[in-house]
Design a protein around this nucleic acid. Structure first.
Lengths: 126, 126
DNA sequence: CAGCATCCGGTTTGATACTG
DNA sequence: CAGTATCAAACCGGATGCTG
């Protein structure tokens, strides 16, 4: 459990309250969230598909970040009562409103890669 | 010193390489960076001005984040050889190209605040 | 004025093993 | 299949004191 009284947490809240940018970042800014959002941007995906497609992510992190996005009402979790179990994730309507922002971020990031151009071979944005 | 061989660091690099969004976030995504960029978006500012205007930031954090932004060539540090010393910070040309993205983030953040509407009094975006 | 250096606790992340 | 639980390591950020 995270302490809500630590200076750290207080500062975080302060920043988020004061600035729209920070607010956006607080939602989109987890380590793995961009990767998740990239993938859910156009399709619905199953838990296992996400896991396979995101190289290096651990189960714990995938679940944690999915839960956070769900809490922020960016994505929806749909459970099919089947055996074996099936769970799909997709953007909510609110999540879809992020698209222009995500697009802008992705564009700038790619532009920056070309301009400053270190690492990353011919691979394209996922 | 940060270990560059930790799984953590490796994963970070992996994500950044693979996704433009992540790359953008890696630059703009520090705790205090949005606050700094908000302020430098329109004017040149001195170190002390920044410090005063960003409530709650410690010197260590301000300097750290400024240095990182400088390394990423988003901001420029201009030292005037005077006594007492004067140092100003401003966006580079590359930094200015971020504006559409920052705008998009800010817009979405503010939209989200209104929609989901918790906390934050009448204060406007800084 | 504009910073560094050091210490240190809290938070985040990852590895691994286990469950309905 | 889709997770949960627990542990340990890495990292971030804050407080404080000092310097050119």
């Amino acid at each position: 459990m995270r302490k809500t009284t630590s200076t750290n947490a207080i500062n975080e809240k302060l920043i988020i309250d004061g600035c729209g940018m920070a607010r956006a970042l607080s939602i989109v800014g987890g380590r793995w969230k961009p990767a998740i959002l990239c993938r859910l941007k156009h399709n619905t995906m199953r838990y296992g598909e996400l896991k396979k497609s995101i190289e290096g992510i651990s189960e714990r992190m995938l679940v944690t970040q999915l839960r956070e996005l769900e809490e922020d009402q960016i994505i929806e979790r749909i459970v099919y009562p089947e055996v074996p179990p099936r769970v799909e994730y997709r953007l909510t309507d609110l999540g879809k409103t992020m698209n222009p922002m995500l697009e802008a971020m992705s564009d700038w990031g790619n532009m920056h890669r070309e301009k400053v151009g270190d690492k990353a071979p011919a691979s394209v944005d996922i």
